[in-house]
Design a protein around this nucleic acid. Sequence first.
DNA 1: CGACTGACGCCGA
DNA 2: CTCGGCGCCAGTC
Length: 111
Amino acid sequence: MGNFEKIWRVVTLVPSGCVASYGQIADLAGLPGRARLTSKALGKAPESLGLPWYRIVRSTGQIAFPAGSELAQTQRVRLIAEGVHVNGRQICMQRFGWKPEISTLLYELEF
DNA sequence: CGACTGACGCCGA
DNA sequence: CTCGGCGCCAGTC
């Protein structure tokens, strides 16, 4: 299994109403310190996978796309639609950050 | 082959 | 608070 695929699988586990950081996704995929790989993998992900890409933000809680860009707007709207509070492009990670159960990960992922 | 490029993250100035 | 520098690595050229 390639690294991109590992990342895509972890992204599918992020529940509605939560957000996760690029670095967190990489860590959970067994690729510590490779946040940039997550951004790359998301950019290359086939549309057909229907990944909840908008639930991935920077570790600071900020939407990664340039403020005002089409993608940033779409991401913001979709998050709000799921109940996530988004002030401008800032999200409160303490409240909406995904904190997965270790048992869930062990069950869902089989690397 | 090397150089450059990201939807990043952390640390120091 | 903002920058800048560096580590990161799979593609792309």
